[in-house]
Design a protein around this nucleic acid. Structure first.
Lengths: 143, 143
DNA sequence: ATATCATTTTGTACTGAGTACAATTTTATT
DNA sequence: AATAAAATTGTACTCAGTACAAAATGATAT
């Protein structure tokens, strides 16, 4: 059994409630996109999402994927990751954590952040909505 | 005198040496771009750089600006800032520090970082070349 | 049910930052 | 001055993401 990926399962009701809890009215596309994001923790691109969901919904358009992404971002269901490559990536985990982007394989790894110690005086009075930490380099399996 | 911006001056020899010290052969464009970056600590876009240097060099092409930026990035003269907006920005300060990007005025502010406490176990064996910290929100004068 | 309205989804055309690349110009070397 | 090397330019192109109107779907009222 070791090394075997256990695919999590999420039933439709769970997915619907997840959306409703985040202020999003469920629809087939939204449920499928959410399901894909929950099952595939690979920080996918819009293209990745499109290709995967297209399997289930052959009438799917790219615009719908972007619409869904925009809605999910707005409702804080996902966060965007800009690694510097042109394609944005998306993360179903909206908590503050770090991302390591490998310059070779292009994969993005999560890592936990305990704290960021910074000089708060410069940002005095600023409203901070997002805190993003991005490391870049070469991952263990590529070096 | 208060509130008056004192523009720093950099003579040509200083700029040439700055480039040479970073492994870049000086040219008119490179000197002008470097001078602009040193004098205007506003994290400019490629467009900003183009517009400014175009004043002095009317034959300047966008491609040359991108060529210069790529060279400066490679030689670690500048670092790139991806705020999530489509245009990249560039910073002559290549040290590790934070950037705050205002969602209203689009300005980018620097702030000092003392340390990032993170779980190093996940990145064990990884080669970390860049560490970027980006905060987003609303700056003091926009809120 | 069925008509009406609102929302979601689709298709097409478009945008614009950045790139590819060959031609030209400038700089360095013999 | 002739030649070679490097820098710069101009043009055309790419392609992730957007704008927007038409079509389809879903919700509500009669």
């Amino acid at each position: 059994m070791e090394g075997k990926t256990i695919e999590k399962s999420f039933d439709t009701q769970y997915l619907k409630d997840y959306l409703i809890d985040h202020g999003v009215k469920p629809s087939t596309i939204r449920i499928k996109v959410l399901e894909y994001l929950l099952k595939n923790r690979i920080h996918p691109t819009a293209e990745d999402i499109y290709n995967a969901v297209y399997e289930d919904i052959p009438t799917l358009s790219k615009t719908s994927v972007y619409n869904t992404i925009d809605l999910f971002l707005e409702k804080n269901i996902i966060q965007i990751i800009n690694t510097g490559n042109k394609e944005s990536r998306y993360d179903i985990d909206t908590s503050i954590h770090g991302h390591f982007s490998c310059n070779i394989c292009n994969r993005v790894f999560d890592f936990d952040i305990d704290s960021i110690e910074y000089d708060k005086s410069i940002l005095d009075g600023f409203i901070i909505n997002e805190q993003k930490v991005l490391f870049k380099g070469i991952c263990n399996s590529c070096k």
